[in-house]
Computed example of a mutant assay.
Amino acid sequence: MMDIVAGLSSLSFESGLTDDEKKLLYLRARSARLTFCGCAHAAFVCQLLHSLRCSIKNYTGVPDSVASAEHGELAVGILGMGRLGKQLLVGLLQKTSINPSHIKISTRNPDSIEKSLPKEVECFFDNRRLAAWADVLFLCCLPSHLPKISRDLRCHLPKRCLVYSFTSAVPVTRLAQLLGHDFIIKPQYEFVPCDTEDLWLSCGHLTKALTDPFLIEASCPLSMKGGITLSLKWVCAVLYSLLNICTSASLGSSQTITLINGVFKEKCENHVQLDAHSFISSSVPLSDESFPWISLTDVQTKETPLLRFVSSSKSMQQCISAVYKSQLVKPLK
Rank of each mutant, 00 (worst) to 15 (best):
L27R: 13
F279Q: 01
L84M: 15
C141L: 14
L178D: 10
P118K: 06
L206T: 05
G80N: 03
K159V: 09
A42V: 02
H156T: 03
N261H: 07
L179A: 04
R154A: 14
I113A: 13
C37I: 07
L274K: 02
K115F: 12
T247M: 04
S10V: 14
I113W: 09
L222D: 05
A42K: 01
F13M: 05
I280K: 02
E73V: 02
L49P: 00
L153I: 04
G82H: 08
C220E: 15
L8Q: 13
K208F: 15
E73M: 02
A237D: 09
T167C: 14
T301R: 00
P147A: 09
L210I: 03
L153V: 10
E120V: 01
R108G: 13
I113F: 12
C155W: 12
K267D: 03
I320G: 08
I280T: 06
A43S: 15
P285G: 08
R174L: 11
P110N: 06
L307R: 00
I103G: 10
T96V: 06
A40I: 03
K208Q: 13
S106R: 03
D3H: 01
S31W: 01
S150Q: 06
S144W: 09
T229D: 12
H71N: 13
S312C: 13
Q94Y: 08
T229R: 14
L93I: 01
L25Y: 14
N261G: 10
L89N: 10
S15K: 08
I228T: 10
S116A: 13
R174V: 04
